[in-house]
């Protein structure tokens, strides 16, 4: 390859990273969840390098956005670090599982799990932010022992919000799985972390999303070092994605505050649903020993478009129905 086409290929990965960072930030799913499918499905990059580049880029976006959140004191660093006990343990187990899966040659499983995780993550992501503050729950024994109290100034509600978390143990269990998925798939698994703090521990949405963002970096760093020595990080590729994803996520965070039209987010959700279905399709094609390019991939694209539209319509109908009942 001549230097010009190498430069063009490099730029195309930066652009892919940029779009992934932008979409990941606008939907709240994080850059990695979008980056891995884009790199494997559209740019034909082996999933082993895609996950490696994605995980290490995730640290950059987490650190980049968390530096703003932590300064405004919304993120609860104390609660976050307490939960990192489980996410880092999960990340170690997840990355070691990935190594075992690669060694045994069951790569197709990673595609399928990735697709499923992406589709399942969409549900809490779509439902997110319907309520700013959770229904109050009585403090339990973990609230006192682990000092799960906090306070922050909510600009939207224009008041100081005092909050407390409950069920620390349940949060830790969910966080272990979040870490495991992060290490296994090379993503930040922000959706699962949000589930742990929002559903399990009953924390306010703002505290949950910002603390989760801060935690993603620590979890991803744990997996990344294992990936490094396993040889899953292609430095030139990771350089391109780190630059692209960070720039995209930065722009996304700037646009996010200006997007008032909720419907536009459904287009983004559709893109994610499409990527999820196509990852599952690619995994199944891979299992059958079918090539990932040519006619098979076009059929896959067409089938995935149809299935993702149907899935999204069903989800949209459910959300509408829930809102009417609420």
């Amino acid at each position: 390859m001549d230097p010009v086409s190498i430069l063009l290929s490099f730029i195309s990965v930066v652009v892919a990273g940029f779009l992934a960072g932008l979409l990941g930030s606008l939907t709240g799913l994080g850059g990695g969840t979008v980056l891995v499918p884009v790199l494997t499905l559209f740019l034909g990059i082996p999933i082993v390098f895609a996950t490696g580049a994605s995980l290490i880029s995730t640290i950059a976006t987490s650190a980049g956005s968390a530096s703003g959140y932590t300064k405004s004191k919304i993120a609860n660093i104390r609660i976050a670090i307490g939960l990192e006990v489980a996410t880092t343990t999960g990340a170690i187990v997840g990355s070691l599982t990935l190594i075992a899966v690669y060694k045994t040659g069951f790569i197709w499983i990673i595609y399928v799990i990735f697709g499923l995780v992406l589709l399942i993550s969409l549900v809490p992501t779509i439902n997110r932010a319907r309520f700013e503050l959770p229904k109050p729950m009585k403090p339990d024994w973990t609230t006192r022992i682990f000092n799960l109290y906090g306070t922050y100034y909510d600009q939207k509600l224009r008041k100081q919000v005092d909050y407390h978390a409950v069920r620390w143990w349940l949060g830790e269990i969910v966080m272990f799985f979040a870490g495991f998925i992060s290490g296994l798939l090379g993503i930040g698994s922000g959706a699962l972390k949000v589930l742990g703090m929002d559903w399990a521990m009953n924390l306010p949405m703002k505290v949950t999303t910002t603390s989760s963002n801060f935690m993603i970096g620590i979890t991803a760093a744990t997996g990344s070092s294992i990936y490094w020595f396993a040889g899953y990080i292609q430095p030139f590729l990771a350089a391109a994605t780190a630059i692209g994803v960070l720039a995209g996520a930065y722009l996304g965070s700037k646009i996010l505050v200006r997007i008032t039209n909720v419907r536009i987010r459904w287009i983004f959700f559709w893109v994610l649903a499409f990527l999820g279905v196509d990852m599952i399709f690619s995994g199944i094609a891979n299992k059958q020993g079918l090539p990932s390019t040519g006619t098979i991939s076009y059929i896959g694209f067409a089938v995935s478009i149809v299935i993702s539209i149907v899935l999204l319509l069903l989800l949209y109908a459910k959300v509408r129905r829930d809102r009417l009942h609420a």
Partner: peptide, 14 residues
């Protein structure tokens, strides 16, 4: 260095 499409023919972190 730029051959990230072929794991066997490029440089990795290892």
């Amino acid at each position: 260095v730029a051959n990230y499409h072929n794991p066997g023919y490029t440089i990795t972190s290892k």
